[in-house]
């Protein structure tokens, strides 16, 4: 059986490596490794191409983490802490809407979950510390989030709605890493299925009407808990073995 082909949205980012400085199309390898460990074959979808035809070739797609979504999408003013990439937003909102319309299996990670909400008419809280009064959803300011592995992210519990599909995947409770300062306010066409019990911040979105559309606010690709990725590749395998 061939592996399902999983697209990962990626960054167009100015980066440095060794002595080189350049504009690159790039993505942290954690995502690639997570897809491969879950039985898929990862390819990167560049985020600056205003077209959706590439979805024809994919069995599933992951909307990855990254910067903030431009609040112009839900007619709000930009908060001073909000940093946007308009080109990536435009391409990903278009890809997300097309993927959902075609019922392609979709996983949203962190920013990717937020794109799910915004693409379907929802909105975000632009700066959580203003709302919840604490910083536990991200690593301390100025620290390297990778300095001591995932434990340097904020960590907290998630409680899962017992009547959700996410409950079948994650059970009632899990502990997650966390690295974000925005959060879902209005989930659009999605349904919240998990929350941080301390502050009711939405941690899981799902779409009851679609085959597989799951959003998680944390970063499973940086952990050994790859249930979200495995669920995606399993859903994508169904599409992969039935000729279109």
């Amino acid at each position: 059986m061939r592996r399902p082909l999983i697209g990962l949205t990626c960054y167009a980012q100015h980066i440095q490596y060794q002595r080189n400085e350049l504009m690159a199309a790039m993505l942290p390898m954690n995502y690639v490794k997570a897809v491969h460990a879950a039985g898929g074959r990862a390819v990167l979808i560049t985020p600056d191409d205003p077209g959706t035809d590439v979805l024809e070739s994919l069995d599933g797609i992951v909307f990855t983490g990254g910067g903030d979504v431009d609040p112009v999408a839900w007619q709000a003013e930009r908060h001073p802490a909000t940093e946007v990439d308009e080109v990536r937003d435009a391409a990903e909102l278009m890809l997300m809407r097309a993927a959902l319309a075609a019922d392609l299996p979709v996983l949203g990670v962190c920013r990717g979950m937020q794109v799910m909400a915004v693409a379907t008419g929802g909105s975000l809280h632009q700066h959580l510390p203003d709302l919840v009064g604490h910083e536990r959803h991200r690593a301390a300011a100025g620290t390297d989030p990778l300095a001591a592995g995932a434990s340097d992210y904020g960590r907290h519990d998630v409680v899962v709605d017992e009547n959700s599909r996410a409950h079948q995947l994650f059970g009632r409770h899990l502990t997650v890493n966390s690295f974000h300062h925005q959060a879902v306010a209005d989930p659009g066409e999605f349904v919240p299925a998990g929350w941080c019990p301390d502050d009711r911040v939405v941690e899981i979105l799902e779409h009851p009407g679609l085959t597989f559309a799951l959003g998680v606010q944390w970063h499973p690709e940086r952990t050994t808990d790859l249930r979200a990725f495995t669920a995606l590749t399993e859903a994508a395998s169904v599409g992969a073995i039935i000729p279109a």
């Binding site: 490596y17 350049l22 942290p28 390898m29």
Partner: peptide, 29 residues
């Protein structure tokens, strides 16, 4: 905020060259 994070990438020049030519670029790690 990321320092020396293992990443998969290509110089963006390749993506632009393919896009300009009317192709849809995808990256193969």
């Amino acid at each position: 905020v990321w320092q020396n994070l293992p990443s998969t990438l290509v110089p963006h020049d390749y993506v632009e060259a393919v896009t300009l030519a009317g192709g849809r670029a995808i990256l193969l790690p």
